[in-house]
Nucleic acid binder design. Structure first.
Lengths: 195, 195
DNA sequence: AGAGAAACTTGACAGTGTTAACTTAACAGT
DNA sequence: ACTGTTAAGTTAACACTGTCAAGTTTCTCT
């Protein structure tokens, strides 16, 4: 096979992402992936320790992408409540528009895959911190999220994750209006300004 | 191999459940399962159309078990708010104490498995209806959950599911007190009686 | 040009879900 | 007691899977 000029690792990762998005998790085998990228299955092992490591690389990408979207959403000036709303919407939007990314990131857990290395969770924690900050500010203690804010951030996170994962799995009653469902969910943790 | 006296289907299902609980999803292959039950892999196909069908049978069990727990929790007399709390706790308890059941039921979605047949969702819908009823009653319109109640029930459901699935995946910050986390989450949708 | 390192392939191992074809056991009717 | 039929299991195979040790090719540097 012709020695490829460009970085093979890069091409493998690209193809993996593409296959994952277009044909789903099941279609992603080492041999098939190798085939569509133009090398042998074992070559992949030169760049990734194993199949899980490949997925981890995709998780990296996914976390980066989500991070980016949350940074954007978090930049909106104005009330903390609005920022919180924007953050929530950004998360939901990311999840629903990138189902395959979302799947590798949050739905393929340790039972099926080697644990995603803890030291790489920094960005993931940062993502959570955005929520904590908006919550802190909203509660009138800007700049320094307390333990309580972080707790609340986790709750918000869990709710959003629950909604996305149920929707992606097709487990929410189809007769339900999806937008209404998500709005109601978001309102649940965005308390109206106390009268 | 000695012809077994008792129903093989029954024994397969039993062993499958046990293996799933004790060794996890990965360890459950047709050959291994057959081995530990004392038959050949192909014999399983006499009782289950394929591996997915076997999982579906386990989902059935799981839904039944959850149903049972919710019925119990829903029977508690007293205020609707308390019943709602009990229902939520029962759900969380079920999820955290039966991780493997929970996994087959909610975490192995269509991407990895043939869709769970829609007609079997009756009991699953009933489970959701419990929440809708408690919510309706709490909102002062007993006996007949409205569209809004059902919407709210889905929101509650999503939040609970999000919490359980994050916890099971080990994705909630370990420094967080789990009980506090869950309590905070539950309080989110159980509004305090308006003053 | 020749040595050494880097990039990639061959061929195999042990496992997977699944199927078609075969064998064995149990039971009914003559 | 001897059939014919049906049910219950098994054998052997197919086409896959992830992964690894060993071998080959290509590039780079002296």
């Amino acid at each position: 096979m012709a020695r490829s000029s460009t970085n093979l690792r890069y091409r493998i990762l690209n193809q993996a992402r593409q296959t994952l998005v277009s044909e789903g998790y099941r279609a992603l085998s080492m041999r098939r992936l190798a085939n569509s990228v133009g090398c042998t299955a074992t070559s992949i092992y030169l760049y990734f320790q194993n199949k899980d490591a490949l997925f981890h690389a995709l998780i990296d990408e996914g976390i980066g992408l989500l991070h980016q979207k949350l940074v954007q959403a978090g930049q909106s000036a104005g009330q903390a409540k609005d920022r919180l709303q924007d953050l929530a919407e950004a998360f939901l939007d990311f999840g629903l528009k990138n189902p395959e990314y979302y799947e590798v990131m949050f739905l393929l857990h340790p039972e099926h895959m080697e644990r995603y290395p803890a030291e790489k969770y920094r960005k993931a924690r940062e993502n959570l911190e955005f929520f904590a900050q908006a919550l802190a500010e909203d509660a009138g203690r800007p700049q320094n999220p307390t333990k309580e804010d972080r707790l609340q951030a986790n709750v918000v996170w869990a709710s959003l994750h629950g909604a996305v994962s149920l929707l992606l799995a097709g487990r929410v009653d189809v007769r339900l209006d999806q937008k209404l469902f998500l709005n109601t969910l978001v309102k649940q943790f965005i308390q109206p300004t106390s009268p």
